[in-house]
Write a protein that binds this DNA or RNA. Sequence first.
DNA 1: AAAAAATGTGACCGATGAGTTACAAATTTA
DNA 2: TAAATTTGTAACTCATCGGTCACATTTTTT
Lengths: 190, 190
Amino acid sequence: MKKNRAATEEKIYEAFLSILKEKGPQGVGINAIAKEAGVSKELIYRYFGGMKGLLLQFAQKGDFFKSLLFIDDKSTSSVADLKHFAKEGTKELRENKLTQEILRWQLIENNEITKDLFKFTNSQIGKIFAINDKDTSLNHAFQLMIGGYVYFTLLSKFNKRFITTDLTDDETWKNFDDALEKTIELFNKE
Amino acid sequence: MKKNRAATEEKIYEAFLSILKEKGPQGVGINAIAKEAGVSKELIYRYFGGMKGLLLQFAQKGDFFKSLLFIDDKSTSSVADLKHFAKEGTKELRENKLTQEILRWQLIENNEITKDLFKFTNSQIGKIFAINDKDTSLNHAFQLMIGGYVYFTLLSKFNKRFITTDLTDDETWKNFDDALEKTIELFNKE
DNA sequence: AAAAAATGTGACCGATGAGTTACAAATTTA
DNA sequence: TAAATTTGTAACTCATCGGTCACATTTTTT
C-alpha cells in the first residue's frame, strides 16, 4: 500500500468539511470523519491532535467567512456601503453552507473543543461588521435584521415555512432584501 | 413502597421540563429524564410512549408560548398593536427559557420524534403573528427584526458578546427594542 | 382471601461514541 | 542492506445511548 501523510491529512480535512456542510455540527465526530475519509481514526489524533486540533486548524485556515470579506474600503461606512453589504452579504450567507453551520454551531454549544473555533470565526465576523460600528438606532436595526437573516437562513434547513412565509421561495428572500434596503433608506432620510 | 401513577407521571414530566430548560434540546434523552425524575425509564415508555409521546403531550399541553398569547383583539392590527407586541413579546421571549429552547430545537433537527412538537408550536407562533400577516415591506422588516431578536436571544446563552455588542447588558436589549419601535414608526409615516 | 391487574425496578441488549493499543507495512536513514 | 522511523490498520476498552425484559411488589377486583 502506498503511504502519503500529506494526502491522508487532506482526505481527513475534506471529510470534515463535507460532513460539517451536510450533516451540520451534530454530525461532526471522530468516527464519522474517519469513516468518510476512509482512514483509521487513530490518524486524526496523530496528525491533528483529535477533534480540538482539527477544529483549530480549520479556524486558522479561515476559509468559511472568506467570501464575505469583499468590501475593501470600510472607512467611509456610507449608506451605499451598507446597502452593498446588505445585498451581497445576505446572498453570500444563503449560499455558503459552511458559514451557516458554524453559525448554527454557536447556537448550540460553546465548550473547550469549540472555544478556539468560535474565537477565530467571531473575529472574522467582526471584520465584516466593522463597516457599521456606530451606536445609532440604524445600526441596531441593521444588526437585528442581519440577525433575522441568519435566523431564517438557519431555520430554512429544517423548516420549509415560518408561519405563512415560504422559506424555499426566492421571492421571500427578495422581500427580505428589499425590506432591509428600505429600512436603511428610511433611517437615513430621517 | 407507595405506588402512584399520577405522581410518577408528574415527576417525569417535570424532569423533562427541567432538563429542556437547563440543558436544552441536546440534554433531552430518555436516560437523563429517568435519572432526573428518579424513576425507571421503562415507565416513560409505558406511560408516555417514549420520547415521541412525551413530546407530543408537551406540545398539546402548550405551556410554552402561552405567555406570548397576550393580545386579545388582533383584528385591528394597528401600529399601536405592533408596538405593543414588539415591546411585550421581546421581553417575554427573553424571559421564557422553555420557549427559547423549543426555538433552538427547530434550528438543529426535524425528525419523526420532533415532528408533532414543532407542528403544534408553530401553530402557536402563527397565532401570535396573525397580528401582522400583510404582505408589506413593514411586515417583512418586522419579521426580520423579530427573527433577529430570536437569534440574539438564543446566541446569548453561549456567547456573552456578538462582535462589540454585549448580550448580557440590558442596555443592548433596550437599544434593540427602540430600534424595533422606530422602524415601525418610520415605515408607517412614509 | 384469592386472583388479577397495575406499578415499579434493575439488569440486560445491541449500537455507537471517543480514545488507546498492538502490530503490520512502507519509507527513510545510516 | 540493515536499522530506525513513519505511516497505516484493526481490534480493543470504556462509557453512554435507546429500548426491552423478567421479575418483585403493591393495589384493585372478584
